[in-house]
């Protein structure tokens, strides 16, 4: 064999051996502090419980719910179709998001919605994930507490409330049945107050005059 071949074989072997010891490179897609600050001050990341409920009912394929609470809480109750990514298990020892989570979080065309009991934990997860350059992330405003308050046990608006509130209440009542919050008896609206009757005015005989 030609001498050049030996040199080439040696170079290739050395490079191959080097590849064996190369550390796994994590490509830095992190957002700059300025970008993150602006994103954090932008409330558009928050979605309401009503929006989430509507999307679940419509089986919106772009919705991806992520429960950020610990596993035991997730197991006892969570939203339908939600995946559990607890805050304390989000990062690996290098301070980066576990690659198995990244497969869930970084899906094109899918909007991931984080939720926790309130919206604090979910928001923390949102900040960590946004910092690592993941887009299309949202937080359910008020968390599960607000979910119970608004969707599962909606409160009837006061009589003087605008009609939009009543429409919203109707939606919430329907949603609460959809999510199986017991059977809510639909009470017939019994009007207890006596209906004021209009009495015919007695024709009065013109008195006097001409």
């Amino acid at each position: 064999m030609n001498k050049t071949y030996f040199v080439l074989i040696f170079i290739l072997f050395a490079l191959g051996l080097g590849a064996l010891f190369l550390p796994e490179t994590q490509h830095n897609k992190e957002r700059s502090p300025r970008e993150l600050f602006l994103a954090m001050n932008n409330p558009s990341r928050f979605v309401t419980t009503d929006q989430v409920a509507k999307k679940i009912i419509e089986a919106d394929p772009t919705l991806f719910l992520i429960d950020t609470r610990p596993f035991d809480q997730y197991e006892s109750y969570s939203l339908p179709g939600a995946v559990n990514i607890p805050l304390e298990k989000l990062l690996d020892t290098n301070g980066l998001i576990f690659s198995e989570w990244m497969d869930y979080l970084d899906i094109e065309g899918v909007n991931a919605v984080f939720f926790s009991n309130s919206d604090i934990t979910a928001d923390q997860v949102w900040v960590i994930c946004s910092r690592q350059g993941i887009d299309n992330l949202y937080v359910m405003k008020g968390g599960l507490n607000y979910w119970v308050e608004t969707i599962l046990k909606p409160e009837k608006p006061v009589q003087s409330a605008p009609s939009e509130d009543f429409a919203l209440y109707d939606f919430r009542k329907g949603a609460s049945q959809f999510f199986g919050a017991g059977t809510i008896s639909i009470e017939a609206e019994v009007i207890s107050e006596p209906v004021p009757r209009m009495r015919k005015k007695k024709k009065t005989v013109a008195s006097g005059g001409c």
Binding site: F13, L15, G16, A19, L20, F21, L22, E24
Partner: peptide, 10 residues
């Protein structure tokens, strides 16, 4: 990936 590269080179 490094191990596979090394094995393939060999």
């Amino acid at each position: 990936r490094g191990l596979f590269t090394f094995l393939f080179v060999i």
